[in-house]
Design a protein around this nucleic acid. Sequence first.
DNA 1: TGCGATTTGTCCGTATGTATT
DNA 2: TAATACATACGGACAAATCGC
Lengths: 226, 226
Amino acid sequence: MPQIALQPLDDGTVRHRVVQLLTRHIVDGNFAPGQRLTEQQLASSLNVSRGPLREAIRELAETGLLVSKPYKGLYVRSVTHKDLEELYSLRTALEIFAFERCWSHRTEAAKDDLRSRSDVLKRTIDEGLDGQQAIELELRLHNWCYELSDHRLLQKNWEGMRSNVNFYFSLHQRAHDRKGPLRQSHDLYVELACGDSLPKMLEHLKDHMRQGFETTLDALTNRLPA
Amino acid sequence: MPQIALQPLDDGTVRHRVVQLLTRHIVDGNFAPGQRLTEQQLASSLNVSRGPLREAIRELAETGLLVSKPYKGLYVRSVTHKDLEELYSLRTALEIFAFERCWSHRTEAAKDDLRSRSDVLKRTIDEGLDGQQAIELELRLHNWCYELSDHRLLQKNWEGMRSNVNFYFSLHQRAHDRKGPLRQSHDLYVELACGDSLPKMLEHLKDHMRQGFETTLDALTNRLPA
DNA sequence: TGCGATTTGTCCGTATGTATT
DNA sequence: TAATACATACGGACAAATCGC
């Protein structure tokens, strides 16, 4: 059972730091999916008291990264075919809604911003050094439409899904021994997102998501049978 | 400042009871929107200690019913034009997705179930006794497509929005001195939901939601200027 | 500006309830 | 059945931050 090293710095409340740390540890795969965690271990490993730890656990349980069963225990989210399918399908619906919402807000500056995010992502993939960094940059690319949609509730929902998507991306990556997502898979996404046809963009978005779902599913069923 | 009377029974953890109680009190309007709450008042009113109370607060803050600002305070969610618009627009997107998902799962038994929910709702509206009960039955009517969609993540998201929708419905109702939603406004919804054309259903769904948004907005801007 | 009061955030000790062995 | 481990809950105490005067 891997122990956690508490990152000393970071600011804000203890609760907030614990949320950030546990999120990163779960996403990075330092815990096995479905693994049971006990408050005592976490509290001593993180060097915090049970109070703010339990509050952080409630937040993570709401986003789905942790599953808390009363009087039974605390578990890292498990990996199933159905969970993955639900995550991708709902994410597709949300991102379609985000593009419908942001379509008329796309200024030239915003389009440059998106292209910039794509460039940074591709550079990081080419370097091939830090896979997790590449994943975060890919999520930042997809974040564009949510930010531009000017819809706080939508953004909040996406933020809640984001760490779960990151969780599965990291699993996929470790299963394939790859460093980050495929390089060319977002060129058409960016081109259509900056283009003139919303229907074409949405159609590509569905394909893009379906392909991501299938490749991730392949990786998990072949190498990590849940 | 209204005091809370603790319902004595209910089972489960204290945290869960507090979540249920506070949700009901906020939705029912026993607190004013934007009102500040202090932990001590809540703890003594509910007769619980601060530990589980604070955990319950984290859950409610995740759903948006409460807003917690570190070291500053705890506030009941406020009422704004933008919040209402975001709630209705995202809800529309989710319910469209739910109908796309459930469309092929609609057995005859499921259709009968939906009609039964509509009948119960209309009977309760006709009685005109309990407005909150009518609201919950309307939400139960809309719950149908989510249950049938066989999508736990979607259901979880909808559950999170549901209490917020309930919150605004109750505000609307009190502003109009009405007991429950309009009687006939769901007949077409049910008919199309049991019909053969998904596009027609989705088109009506958008109209249905837009109308609900506008009437609620009217009620709030005229009588409760935020 | 500073000072005191209030409130949130945090820690600890302890007791109780629940599940599992 | 008993015993152990753990989650849950309570209460007191103090630190940290905010607000009002």
